[in-house]
Each structure stands twice: as C-alpha cells, then as structure tokens.
Design a protein around this nucleic acid. Structure first.
Lengths: 111, 111
DNA sequence: TACACCTGTAATATATTTATTACAGGTGTT
DNA sequence: AACACCTGTAATAAATATATTACAGGTGTA
C-alpha cells in the first residue's frame, strides 16, 4: 500500500485507526504474520468482542485483509493479515487531502 | 522534524493529533504560514476555546511551535507555526515504537 | 467612557470511543 | 452428553474527546 494520494476521509480513517495504543499493538503483532482472531485476542490480551471492534477500524482504514479458512480439524478460522504500507506524511499531503475532507457527524460508522 | 525514531508514546501522540478533521484543517491552514490565534479561529471557523483545545493536541505532539509577539498597535499576539515534517510510517516503525509504549489511563493529560 | 480588537481559562454539556457482559451457533473429541 | 475449541454480535456501561458558555483581563482608538 504505497499510496501516493489520499482523499481527506481516507487519510482521516487511517489516522483514526492508528490513534489507539491497542491497535498499534495489534499492528505490531500482525507485522509478524497473519493470525486468526482467537489467537490474536490471546496475544493482544483482550476480549474477542473488543478485538473485533479494533479490527474493524483497521479494516475500515484498509490496513488489513481477512481470509476465512477451515483448519485441518474442521474448525472455522478467520485470519487477519496486515497489508504492507509505507506512508509519507507531509504538510502538502495533508493540505491536498483536506480539500476533499467531509466533516460529518459520524453517520458512516456502519461498516 | 525528519524524525527517524519515535517512542511509542510519541508516535501515539502524533497519530492522536492527526486523527481529527478539524486538526487536519488547522494543519492545512498553518501550512500556508504562521498565524495568530484569533485569525486562525476565524479561518478555521471555530471558537477560540475549541481552537485552543485542538492546538494543545498539536503542541503535545510537537507539530507546532508558538511565539508571543506584540503587534505594531500594541496588542498581544500569539502566533502558531507549523513545524516541517516528513514522516515515513511503516510496520517496522510501529513495531519498534510499540516496544516502548506505555498503555495508561490518560493521567498525563495536563500539558 | 465605550468600543473593537487581542489572550486565556474554568465549568459544563454533548458526542464518540472504548470496554464489558451476555448471548447464539458451529466443529471435533472424550 | 459434556467439553474445548472456533466465529459472530447485540446491548450496555464507562471513559474520553469534543464543543459550548461564560467569564476575566489586556491594548489602543473614537
């Protein structure tokens, strides 16, 4: 994800996704390799419902992708994988993005 | 501010500062040049008290610096200036920063 | 003096984010 | 059947972030 251009809303979603210590830790764990939800919850030391909430923000920002598989012993497994990225954040990038920023009262919160 | 290394807390403060549409707009305005508080409030179309709150987050993240001056006609003027930056955000950067991340219940909120 | 600017902050209300609890339903193994 | 895993979500509580209101106090000019 070597994105050159962002809309204001995309950039904002990205920063929002990155603005929480638990999500930074989740990213850090996923940087080591894909992982399934329950195991990720154990490693990140948080409940699954809470983890889902954080993962949804990362997903909304386009930082992770998911993959449903079935394990050898037949269990459904949902894997999360971190998409590679290298963002260059400059005042100019922000200035351009702000032009397309829609400041709204958070209605688009449903996935 | 071509920072190469961040502590976890510094990086988090940075992302928190960037995770609000009004603050992105403030950055965008300041990218054009330094400005004093009242004028900035008019350009950003927000009240001064609210603007102060946002500016404090930018200050906490080390993105702006301030300068008190006295105008020709004797008025006290507080100028805010955007510090230049070019952040390269990668999974590795986050992974390193997370090592020094202190997850706390926000006590250090006083400037 | 009244007015038009400027800085600064405390107290409070509102909105959003974060976190928890309690569920439902699936598989394979003992 | 009971157990140990897995996914998924709704309802709610608690903590923070955002926004407003109401102040106090400074300067120079009409």
């Amino acid at each position: 994800m070597m994105k050159e251009k962002f809309t204001g809303d995309e950039l904002l979603a990205l920063f929002e996704a990155l603005s929480n210590p638990h999500r930074l830790r989740i990213i850090s764990i996923l940087a080591e390799g894909k992982q399934y939800v329950s195991q990720l919850a154990r490693e990140a030391e948080m409940s699954r419902p809470l983890l889902y909430m954080h993962l949804q923000k990362l997903e909304k920002a386009g930082m992770v992708k998911t993959e449903m598989t079935v394990s050898e012993d037949g269990k459904a497994m949902k894997y999360y994988e971190l998409l590679p990225f290298d963002f260059h954040i400059t005042p100019e990038l922000i200035r351009d993005a702000v032009k397309t920023l829609t400041i709204k009262k958070k209605e688009g919160n449903k996935k």
